[in-house]
């Protein structure tokens, strides 16, 4: 950890303003940032504490949706009665992540911005294009069991590690961002995270001079909600593959199939074509495979993580099979 100055941002727009400086980082729960600072993966000269800003509430939106402030803790979101009732996929995804202690500190905004757990990103003595542009990707020929099989580039094969955003992606939530001038913009969660391409250090849409203030969920979407996270250790482990699903089946036919995937890519993976395969059709094994084909059409393994491709297919089958059973 390098010495840093700690300041308190008096308002979201001030916080946004402070991030104009490339050496400033916003800190709320700090569950990811502080670890990375100890390893000197992150070396900010200034931390702006935003933990006391007025963004820590969950409120109903006029259209019947829900606004989750950027500083609401993961625990508070997961236990909120409306989240549990109307958006259980989100509660389940959050509870599948980290530990109770971490969830008590981690915030909505911070969770969206968490960095990859790639072994080589977190070791400053190893080449990593994300941490040190142009130095190379150590993971491609290294230990890559946890790495991506979708949307990779020859610059980076890291995964986005979170669970919460996978569920938000299935729910088509919106990220609200305040700019330094006090104006706001919003970005669908599905578009918030970026693929690595030639700029793996750019992980999301958040620019300098911006701060996340909230995530809004649409009016209740109904359906049955699933969050299936596959891992060899049953808690406190990142997903090998995860599936967030909001499914409706009427008369044996899919009438809603919003599916997002974790553990496969540099972002929560959402492709409307996967659900489109299912809609209006009768559930059967062949159909599930067809949906998996769409999901995995461009999948590419790197040796150690080849297994993720059949595992993603099987996990999708598991979720859809369960949904069919529950609907029967």
């Amino acid at each position: 950890m390098q010495p840093f100055e700690l300041v308190r941002a008096p308002s979201p727009s001030d916080a946004a303003q402070l991030t104009k400086d490339e050496h400033t980082r916003l800190i709320a729960g700090g569950t990811n940032l502080l670890d990375l600072m100890k390893l000197q993966v992150e070396t900010p000269s200034r931390l702006a504490d935003i933990s006391r800003l007025d963004c820590a509430e969950i409120t109903d939106t006029p259209d019947g949706g829900l606004r989750i402030g950027a500083l609401v803790t993961n625990t508070a979101t997961a236990v909120h009665p409306r989240v549990r009732q109307d958006y259980p996929v989100l509660a389940r995804a959050i509870l599948a992540g980290a530990t109770q202690q971490l969830r008590n500190k981690a915030t909505t905004g911070g969770n969206l911005c968490q960095r990859t757990r790639c072994f080589y990103f977190t070791k400053i003595d190893q080449p990593c294009n994300k941490r040190d542009p142009g130095s190379g990707c150590s993971a491609i020929e290294g230990v890559a069991k946890l790495h991506a099989v979708l949307g990779t580039s020859d610059q980076c094969i890291a995964t986005y590690p979170g669970d919460m955003a996978v569920a938000m992606s299935a729910l088509d939530a919106e990220v609200h961002i305040m700019k330094e001038d006090g104006t706001e913009r919003s970005v669908p969660v599905r578009d918030f995270h970026l693929l690595p391409g030639d700029t793996p250090w750019r992980e999301n849409e958040l620019g300098r001079g911006e701060m996340i203030t909230a995530v809004t969920l649409p009016p209740p979407v109904g359906g049955a909600h699933y969050y299936r996270k596959v891992r060899e250790r049953s808690s406190y482990a990142f997903a090998l593959v995860s599936v967030a699903a909001v499914i409706e089946i009427e008369g044996g036919v899919f009438t809603r199939a919003d599916l997002a995937f974790g553990g496969l890519a540099h972002k929560p993976w959402f492709d409307p074509a996967i659900g489109a395969v299912l809609l209006g059709k009768a559930a059967d094994d062949a159909l599930f495979d067809e949906a998996a084909d769409v999901l995995l059409q461009s999948a590419r393994g790197f040796g150690e993580n080849d297994f993720k491709i059949p595992l993603a297919r099987r996990t999708l089958r598991a979720v859809l099979t369960q949904a069919v059973e529950d609907a029967a």
Partner: peptide, 25 residues
């Protein structure tokens, strides 16, 4: 334990990535 094939360093060197059983296991 997972070792890098090129320089032999231990890659999963903390309790988040070296998986001892947790209560739920």
């Amino acid at each position: 334990l997972e070792f890098d094939p090129r320089d032999g360093h231990l890659v999963n060197c903390d309790l988040a990535e070296y998986h001892v059983p947790v209560h739920r296991d």
